[in-house]
Design a protein around this nucleic acid. Structure first.
Length: 968
RNA sequence: GCGCGGUUAGCUCAGUGGUAGAGCAUUACCUUGACACGGUAGGGGUCACAGGUUCGAACCCUGUAUCGCGCACCA
């Protein structure tokens, strides 16, 4: 390797290695491999989205897992792709259309508009993929999927038809969450409850049968009064029981004749008589609870709000055409004019907002498709019983609670961008015999080959709500069996759900009479199939057999219901078939929930706040490795992440440290040293090897618990605070010396440590670790498939075994010996500091060792103390009075006549130290004097305390002696 | 209302029964032959509060306060 530059420059390195990995197909999973499988599917980002910090966190974790698994010898599939994101994408294209051509989408028509969306996708779809590559994501790009791919779309259709056949999908007129801006129904999960400041209006109405008797009604939505069809009271409420059955005069619309304003007073248990006035206005067409009351009492429905949130004709002349919020104000004015308004007091209540458009949703009655969730019990059980693990596991409770209380899923959306519902329908005048015959003709098994996994069973026929056998021969037989004389002409409603393209074509060709449902499916109705639909389902592909169920899923807790829970259900429903030979239908074994990325102030990152940094800018500025390392360092399991650019800076600094540590090795010259000679190992060599072993164990523990912040912290500590701060500094004693054999051996130790360290680093900081792996020449030492070609396939380091430890004499006592020496050095440096010796000045020390040291150890001491010389003095040596002295475990250190020591300050410091020792000694003594303690405590803890007491006492003696020397 | 999580150094966070830790920030000194994206030595904490269990509590239990999140048809 050419000489390394002084600072690490990621820009020169990252793209080079990513291209290399791609060219060598390093990310491509081989289903035929004999290695055990490891797989993850990416949570597909929005195809037109941009990388944000949430993606960085999420994908870095996935990449760490994938790279670690490769080094563990697994065959890894990390399957990437994107999501079509129905509403978000459609809105984006609509906006562009409005801006550039000043047209709403309806001016273009559905077909032309969809062409525009695809154009947009072609233009922007690669952006986020390329950004993921910049981050270093080791995805198998050869398998990249998009939820609107033809193959994927067929899966979605198949799933729809299967569930439809089972009767789990149905169409019905229900109250749904309607978004007046997007003008589509939403699922319950897409509605966010928000506190909203408004008013509670009290208005009075007269009881028609009892002139002069008035009821006061409380409402937050006076604009819906024209839609009221009853007022309800609790039948047990003594204030009102006598009024049930009578009528009130509804104040709006004002222009109606009195008889059309009369609505009944009904009794319903739902009414809480503690709340408001105990009288509830019932608007069945615009409120879910009211709709239920209306159903119980067979109340008429009056719709007064249009799909776009404006008021319609039935709302009356005063409100007609107004937006619902404007209408609220006008309704209040009208009530005031009628002197019906009693009061309006400020009030805060929770209102459901459309998550996408951020406007209050409007409960609205409409015809929609619903799904009764499949496999709910199995899905609950697998998590409850721990066969699927959540990390952190508290999310299991949230998951369980949701599954226990779920309602049917509204899966249809009144959008154009998405998977169009594969149902064709027709209102058919005729007799059943002829109709069945016609249908049999439409569904004749096609002459075109079907893709593997699809067959004629992917077809369902419903006539007037009854399902018929989906087979042309059987239908014809049935038709023939109907006696003509009984078969009368009437209207039949025929629905045909099919995946088969040729039947679909037949239905289209059947002319204007058959028409495909105009709605599309909720985007999540496609992404819940992601773990298997991306692997070639319904065909039993090699990929599916090898890599399904997947191993880990990494995602945010905000989509636990939207995506995770539904994927589990889909897994059971569609992958539970025995022919796959699966032990279980779990789509994944572990779910890791990341935190939510917030800014320094703890606010969620969002486009509107503009508080989300652009990860690509951060990569440009600091490097992808720095971004990854910094993010992981600050992202503990289960906690939200308070992101700060300082974290990335930390990552950059760390990479630079690693770079320079390698540069230091490089500057000592020579080839890679393979063999370590146990006979030549210094204390420091043994110490760093033991520390390396400890680091490997820590990493393994952290990985087992998915604690990536622990892992990065351990790596940081080991490399910076142990290897660089102590070992590298100590090794200078060898390199500045003349013993070539020792130099070679030290290089061998360094090469051993660095080559292991780089491997430990690789999953976290893939680019720099690869660069240095090659640059340092470690790749040349390895077989091609075990690191020779790339560090990606180098084996993950194992903790040292007993044989290794014995061979190199790595007893644990070396840790204590070197730790004691290090502590002595720190105190010695402190002595310099207290003596006001400038950092750049070398000092002549005298050292009175407690035991005869090896010459090499003295050299190390000298270097670490930045000493000009370290004169060993005999045991009976007496330093001159007033010499700054350090008494430590390994001996005494004198700093004769150096600097301008501030005697009083030094005395003060020593006294403070002695006080600290006193209090520690007192604490331990008190414990040891307590018989309860000495008899109940484990032997090891007792021993620990006794040792601690001795240590503190020794330290106190040393400090006292130093103080005495100063005073002398 | 129910459920979950947090509260430890100025800031961001580790730390699940036995000597309170890291990074950043901060103070002093230092561009010495890996690194100023650096080095060395410091300073800084009644672990939110109150009880309890224990020989011993940041850690376990009970309660309180406070912040955040999720769920819930209160007009």
């Amino acid at each position: 390797m050419a000489e390394l530059s002084k600072a690490y420059e990621p820009q020169l390195v990252e793209d080079k290695w990513y291209d290399f990995w791609l060219k060598q197909n390093c990310f491509t999973a081989n289903p035929k491999s004999a290695k055990p499988a490891y797989s993850i599917v990416i949570p597909p980002p929005n195809v037109t989205g941009m990388l944000h910090m949430g993606h960085v966190l999420n994908n870095t974790i996935q990449d760490i897992l994938a790279r670690k698994a490769r080094m563990d010898g697994k065959e890894v599939l990390w399957l990437p792709g994107t999501d079509h994101a129905g509403i978000a994408t459609q809105v984006m294209v609509e906006k562009q259309l409005k801006k550039e051509e000043k047209k709403p989408r309806h001016d273009l028509g559905r077909e032309e508009f969809l062409k525009r969306v695809w154009l947009w996708k072609e233009k922007h779809g690669d952006i986020i993929i390329n950004q993921l590559k910049k981050l270093g994501s080791s995805c198998d790009w050869t398998r990249e999927r998009f939820t609107m791919d033809p193959e994927y779309s067929r899966c979605v259709q198949k799933v729809f038809v299967e569930l439809y056949k089972k009767g789990l999908i149905y169409r019905g007129k229900r109250m749904v969450n309607w978004c007046p801006v997007s003008q589509t129904a939403l699922s319950d999960e897409e509605v966010e409850m928000k506190a909203q400041k408004g008013f509670m209006y009290h208005f009075k109405v007269e009881v028609a049968e009892l002139p002069g008797t008035w009821l006061t009604i409380a409402t937050t939505r006076p604009e819906t009064i024209p839609g009221d069809t009853a007022v309800a009271v609790n039948p047990k409420d003594p204030r009102y029981t006598h009024l049930i059955g009578k009528h009130i005069v509804r104040p709006l619309p004002a222009e109606l004749p009195r008889e059309q304003k009369l609505i009944p007073i009904i009794g319903d248990e739902h009414v809480d008589f503690e709340f408001g006035t105990g009288v509830l206005k019932v608007t069945p067409a615009h409120d879910k609870a009211d709709f239920d009351i209306g159903t119980r009492h067979k109340l008429p429905l009056i719709e007064v709000i249009n799909a776009d949130g404006s008021m319609n004709d039935l709302a009356g002349a005063d409100l007609r055409g107004l937006d619902r919020f404007k209408a609220r104000k006008v309704a209040v004015e009208k009530l005031t004019e009628q002197e019906a308004l009693v009061e309006a007091k400020p009030y805060e209540n929770n209102v459901g907002y459309s998550q996408r458009a951020d406007v209050p949703i409007e409960p609205r009655l409409s015809e929609q498709w619903f799904l009764k969730y499949p496999a709910v019990e199995q899905s609950k059980a697998c998590v409850a019983e721990g066969r699927m693990k959540f990390h952190p596991d508290r999310w299991a409770k949230v998951y369980d609670h949701w599954l226990t209380n779920i309602q049917d899923w509204c899966i249809s959306r009144q959008l154009w961008w998405g998977h169009r519902i594969p149902v064709w329908s027709k209102r058919w005048q005729g007799n059943l015999r002829d109709i069945l015959t016609d249908i049999a003709g439409l569904i004749i098994k096609d002459v075109y080959p079907q893709p593997a996994g699809f067959d004629s069973q992917d077809l369902a026929i419903t006539i007037n709500g009854k399902q018929y056998l989906a087979d042309s021969v059987a239908l014809q037989k049935l038709a023939n069996s109907i006696d003509k004389s009984f078969d009368q002409t009437s209207e039949y409603y025929v629905q045909i759900a099919t995946v088969n393209p040729s039947i679909q074509k037949n239905l289209e060709l059947a002319g204007v009479e058959f028409s495909q449902d105009s709605d599309v499916l909720d985007t999540w109705f496609s992404s819940w199939l992601w773990p298997f639909a991306t692997m070639g389902w319904p065909e039993q592909t090699e990929t599916l057999k090898k890599f399904y169920p997947t191993t880990d899923l990494v995602t945010g807790p905000d989509i636990i219901f939207f995506w995770v829970a539904r994927m589990i259900m889909a897994g059971y429903e569609f992958m539970g078939e025995p022919q796959f030979g699966l032990p279980d239908a779990l789509p994944f074994q572990n779910v890791y929930f990341t935190g939510i990325i917030r800014d320094k102030q703890g606010r969620k990152m969002s486009k509107t706040l503009g508080n989300s940094p652009d990860p690509i800018e951060l990569i440009t500025k600091y490097g992808a490795d720095a971004l990854r390392f910094g993010t992981m360092r600050g992202a503990p399991l289960g906690q939200d992440v308070m992101f700060d650019e300082k974290d990335v800076e930390l990552g950059r600094n760390f990479c630079n440290k690693l770079w320079n540590a390698c540069r230091f090795r490089q500057m000592q010259g020579g080839e890679v040293q393979g063999e370590i000679n146990p006979a030549l190992l210094t204390n420091d060599d043994k110490w760093i090897l033991l520390k390396l072993d400890a680091a490997i164990r820590e990493l393994d523990t952290a990985f087992a618990a998915y604690k990536f912040s622990d892992a990065t912290a351990a790596l940081y500590r080991f490399f910076w605070n142990e290897y660089c701060d102590w070992y590298v500094e100590a090794s200078k004693a060898v390199f500045y010396g003349t013993d070539d054999a020792l130099k070679a051996n030290t290089l061998a130790v360094i090469d051993f440590v660095l080559s292991h360290t780089l491997r430990l680093f690789h999953p976290f900081i893939p680019f720099i670790s690869e660069e240095l792996w090659h640059g340092m020449g470690y790749s040349t030492e390895m077989p091609a498939d075990q690191g020779g070609e790339t560090i990606m396939y180098a084996h993950w380091p194992k903790p040292f075994d007993a044989e290794f430890t014995a061979h190199y004499g790595l007893e644990a006592c070396w840790l204590d010996i070197v730790n004691a020496r290090n502590e002595f050095v720190t105190q010695g440096r402190n002595l310099r500091r207290e003596g006001n010796i400038p950092a750049n000045k070398k000092v002549k020390f005298q050292f009175q060792p407690a035991a005869q040291p090896a010459p090499q150890d003295l050299e190390v001491l000298k270097i670490l103390l930045n000493a000009e010389s370290l004169e060993v003095v005999p045991a009976d040596f007496q330093p001159r009075k007033g010499t700054p002295t350090l008494r430590g475990a390994i001996g005494e250190l004198f700093m004769p006549l150096e600097g301008l020591i501030d005697v009083d300050a030094e005395k003060g410091r020593l006294q403070k130290e002695i006080e600290k020792f006193d209090s520690e000694i007192l604490k331990v003594e008190q414990k040891l004097a307590n018989p309860n303690f000495t008899t109940k405590v484990p032997a090891a803890v007792l021993e620990d305390h006794r040792n601690r007491l001795i240590e503190w006492q020794a330290k106190r003696e040393h400090a006292r002696a130093a103080l005495a020397a100063l005073e002398g």
